[in-house]
Design a protein around this nucleic acid. Structure first.
Length: 947
DNA sequence: GCAAGGTC
């Protein structure tokens, strides 16, 4: 008989009871948090299969939904609530909050804190109360960079009151039953890297935005009383947006139309007139066109040389992403981008469409497109078309972009209860979806070439065979064109041969759709904020709408952009933002450390800020010019922007990018070096000898190199430079004194291609830069410094010489002596367009580097007058506005001669001086040792060199 | 009185 002790008996009862209790009472309690209330509601609906109950939280907008659900391997009691976007925001503290009580420059280093925004304190209270009662937390914020950061705001809030919370991340890209169920079954952990990247962006946006906004507002309000009530904000997205508007405006203003002539032939048979276009298109020399007209008229019989027929397609659209939706809404539906996105958000949260903020235009295989088409099959407007698609099966045209998180925008539920713009946008999304999964339109094109006494003319006709997607997509047109019948080898008498004239036309001002396209192309803002930034520059009166559609800069907008532009800063260009974006991606991928990126970026903008402060008169002048006011002079005592510390002094202009070279000192090696303030966009740096114990910029300028080059006061370790230099010495580092440079172990870098030698020879890779709080120059990383200019892809003929019959390479018509430097500051080469076509014979300049080196995109037509004409004598065949004529440094100078000048031209003119300096170095004799001044060896292996 | 990014 088995004996059971009373103690054992009691223990087993206790265990069973515990199991019972835990199964009944201790069901795991899980807090779920979504990014917004609508999302929480719908996610709760799908997880609970419609059986959730609702109760109030502290915030009236963010409810709590409760239900049971299987998750994390067990049945859980779920409570689901939400935030309303970001819960927290970075702020300055104490005196730095006030405009009056601190110098704006301090904002780059001032402490910032991330606090819950006052409006959201109730949401925070709800989260804290719920979190205390839960064992796990699941983050359901949107699956993008900002969503991850919002997730961490929630996590930090909840974990602060319940450190034992087990935290998970649900990944989903649309709020459908299937997607949500998949997410709960495949929970992940939140990604800190992604959230960190957002923290870096937030801090930078705040510091840079606040510092420059206060700087330019305070300054301009003070010197121009007329602006006393204007807030003149600066932001890393709004300013480049303004820059786009200004650039196009100037391109248009500076455009000079050019008259051209062409020949036109018509042939009328039975009321149908066929018009033939001249194969030479158009010429800019009337005499030649007249001569060619006479030649045709001499023997006016047209011989049909060629009749070609071929199938022609008009492609259905690619799947819809956010910016495409905004652009088409703006152009075709007349719903502006901001409104369109707002409506799309609403349609998304109501479950009618997929997530509307997406960069993807490729449908993943996992989406059952046919079932989505089927949802639309009953509609009276597009139902028949949908049924047609189902017969062949949905076949999406695929784009090339994917953000790896959201699919293209598509309808996920049929709706017939919408009205106004909501209905209009939904209809567009449905029609676009049906169009992109259907078939291309098909046609047949006939092309006829005729010869009239040696001159060739062509016409083409189009017959549309199948309209296909066009039947459901009224936002695009495709019209057929009838022509007469022609047979190869036949002849006919043309009805008319005439000379017609026209003029090249200026580019149009930007529309909202154009502006969004530019922002997208250059990475300014997000899908969700493009429209906001446009709104901001309108509110600030930086731009206005001409005829309600086209953007035009205001005087204030012009003044601001030109002010910074005159300093040589790329503030109004998208490059700085693009560089930050690239670094943010590296943080997300774990390649870069967030604090390092933050330090670098703060240092860069702080340097720019100091120079802007030094040269603030340039902003005054530009602004004064446009608003037609004279700047009041203000005393230093009145100036709220007097620097609190010693100002950074410029030594000379950077040879690479034209920004300023300043004195820096490595925190680690304590070596001095000259570096460009454009870092990290520009990595020009000149490292100096470790025998220098102090280095300051003197007040004197170099008598050899000129007014733009400052001399430097050196203090050497006692005796270290003897017998050639005293312990204190004033010298030039611009290149006029080669011996001195060599003594310092300094090497100038005339072009970015020489950058590999900018690291000091005796330093390890790790100590080539320094990592102090406001300086982190590091010359070893390779980044294109050319990208800081010419962001508008120049109109460079991709292969100007490859036309039929042309030479394979353009020929050099002259060398390096025109005084025009390309973007890498190398004398540009002048070439001739050989390719047959309207530009044949024209002269242009391009990057002066060899083809086997990395060339910049520099391109500019030669406007000096002597246009190289060939037999055709043709010139430009299009608007000549796309060479960055206003902002492009050398380009602007080149164009300045041939254009209507604006405001007395550009203030730049340093390129030539620098080039002369380089030339003088190159022309010196055999290289001499810097120590003993003998040839045959260098200072490194000089017998007199101790170390 | 500043930014940009979420969202109401």
């Amino acid at each position: 008989m088995l004996m059971i002790s009373p103690a054992f008996y009691c223990r087993s009862i206790y265990k069973s009871f515990s199991r019972f209790c835990s199964s009944v009472q201790q069901k795991m309690k899980v807090l779920n948090v979504a990014e917004k209330n609508d999302a929480a509601k719908n996610i709760a609906f799908f997880l609970s299969q419609g059986n959730s109950t609702r109760r109030e939280g502290f915030s009236v907008y963010n409810k709590i939904y409760e239900f049971n659900c299987y998750a994390l391997g067990q049945n859980c009691t779920m409570s689901m609530t939400s935030v309303s976007g970001h819960l927290m925001n970075y702020e300055f503290t104490g005196a730095h909050r006030s405009w009056q009580s601190c110098n704006p420059e301090e904002l780059f280093d001032a402490p910032v804190v991330k606090n819950v925004t006052e409006d959201f304190l109730n949401i925070k209270k709800t989260l804290e109360r719920e979190a205390r009662q839960c064992q796990a937390l699941i983050i359901w914020t949107d699956c993008d960079r900002e969503g991850e950061n919002i997730g961490y705001e929630v996590i930090n809030t909840c974990v602060a009151v319940n450190p034992r919370l087990d935290v998970y991340r649900a990944k989903f890209s649309e709020i459908t039953s299937q997607s949500i169920r998949r997410a709960i079954a495949n929970l992940e952990r939140p990604n800190k890297n992604i959230s960190d990247a957002v923290d870096v962006r937030q801090q930078l946006d705040l510091r840079i935005g606040a510092a420059f906004t206060r700087f330019q507002t305070l300054r301009l309000q003070r010197v121009f009383p007329i602006l006393a009530d204007h807030l003149l904000s600066y932001g890393s997205c709004q300013f480049p947006t303004l820059g786009f508007v200004v650039e196009r405006y100037l391109a248009r203003e500076n455009f000079v139309g050019e008259e051209f002539w062409r020949l036109k032939v018509t042939h009328t048979v039975d009321d149908l007139t066929t018009e033939f276009r001249w194969n030479r298109d158009r010429l800019f020399d009337e005499t030649i066109v007249t001569a060619l007209l006479l030649r045709c008229q001499e023997r006016p019989t047209a011989m049909v040389e060629k009749v070609d027929g071929k199938p022609k397609s008009k492609w259905r659209p690619t799947p819809l992403d956010t910016t495409e939706m905004e652009k088409i809404a703006s152009r075709k539906l007349k719903i502006n981008a901001k409104e369109a996105l707002k409506i799309a958000e609403k349609l998304y949260t109501k479950g009618y469409i997929s997530y509307p903020r997406t960069e993807t235009n490729i449908f993943p295989d996992s989406i059952n497109l046919n079932s989505l088409v089927e949802l639309q099959a009953g509609d009276t407007r597009w139902g028949n078309f949908a049924q047609g698609v189902l017969q062949d099966g949905a076949n999406p045209r695929q784009g090339k972009k994917s953000d790896q998180s959201h699919p293209p925008i598509h309808p996920i539920k049929y709706a017939n209860d919408l009205s106004g713009n909501d209905a209009k946008l939904y209809e567009f999304i449905v029609r676009h979806f049906l169009a992109c999964v259907s078939k291309d339109a098909k046609g047949h094109e006939t092309s006829v070439t005729i010869n009239i006494n040696g001159e060739l003319f062509t016409c083409s006709g189009l017959m549309i065979i199948e309209r296909n997607y066009l039947d459901v997509y009224p936002y695009e047109n495709w019209n057929g064109k009838n022509i007469n019948n022609y047979t190869q080898g036949s002849t006919f008498q043309p009805s008319s041969i005439e000379k017609v004239t026209g003029s090249t036309t200026a580019p149009p001002l930007l529309t909202e759709a154009d502006l969004i396209a530019l922002m997208e192309k250059h990475g300014i803002g997000t899908d969700a904020t493009h429209a906001e930034h446009i709104e901001t520059i309108k509110t600030r009166s930086y731009v206005g709408l001409q005829d309600g559609v086209h953007f035009e800069p205001s005087a204030v907008g012009m003044g601001l952009v030109e002010g910074y532009d005159t300093m040589g800063f790329a503030m109004s260009k998208p490059d700085y933002r693009a560089e930050l974006e690239a670094d943010l991606k590296r943080i997300c991928n774990g390649v870069r450390q967030p604090d390092q990126v933050l330090r670098e970026q703060v240092a860069k903008y702080k340097s720019l800020f100091r120079i802007a402060k030094e040269q603030v008169n340039k902003i005054d002048e530009a602004m004064g010019k446009y608003i037609q006011q004279t700047a009041n002079t203000i005393s230093e005592a009145e100036d709220p922007l007097i620097p609190s510390g010693p100002a950074v002094q410029t030594v000379y202009a950077c040879q690479w990018c034209k920004l300023n070279m300043v004195v820096k000192r490595s925190n680690e090696s304590r070596r001095f070096f000259l570096a460009c303030v454009g870092f990290p966009a520009c990595r020009n740096a000149i490292w100096l000898s470790n025998k220098i114990i102090d280095l300051t910029v003197s007040d004197r300028t170099c008598p050899t190199c000129g007014q733009e080059v400052k001399l430097l006061d050196f203090k050497f370790q006692p005796g270290s430079m003897a017998p050639y230099y005293p312990n204190s010495y004033t010298g030039c580092l611009h290149g006029c004194d080669e011996d001195f440079l060599q003594m310092l172990g300094a090497r100038l870098n005339p072009t970015p291609s020489a950058r590999t030698n900018t690291t000091p020879r005796n330093q390890s890779q790790n100590d080539s830069g320094f990592s102090g709080s406001d300086n982190s120059y590091n010359s070893r990383r390779s980044t294109s410094s050319n990208s800081s200019r010419n962001y508008n892809t120049p109109n460079f003929p991709s292969n100007p010489s490859a036309g039929p019959g042309g030479n394979r390479r353009p020929s050099y018509s002259n060398g390096y002596d025109d005084g025009i430097n390309c973007t890498c500051n190398v004398p540009a080469v002048k070439l001739t367009v050989r390719k047959e076509g309207p530009n044949q014979g024209r002269l242009f300049y391009r990057c002066g580097k060899n083809r086997d080196e990395q060339q910049c995109n520099f391109f500019v037509w030669d406007m000096s007058g002597g246009v190289g004409t060939d037999a055709a004598g043709t010139h430009d065949d299009g608007p000549r506005w796309d060479n960055n004529s206003r902002f492009g440094g050398s380009n602007a100078q080149v164009h300045g001669g041939g254009r209507r000048g604006r405001g007395g031209g550009d203030s730049r003119g340093r390129g030539g001086g620098e080039f002369r300096a380089r030339g003088s170095r190159n022309s010196s004799g055999p290289r001499k040792c810097g120590i003993c001044h003998q040839t045959g060896h260098t200072r490194r292996n000089c017998p007199q060199n101790e170390g």
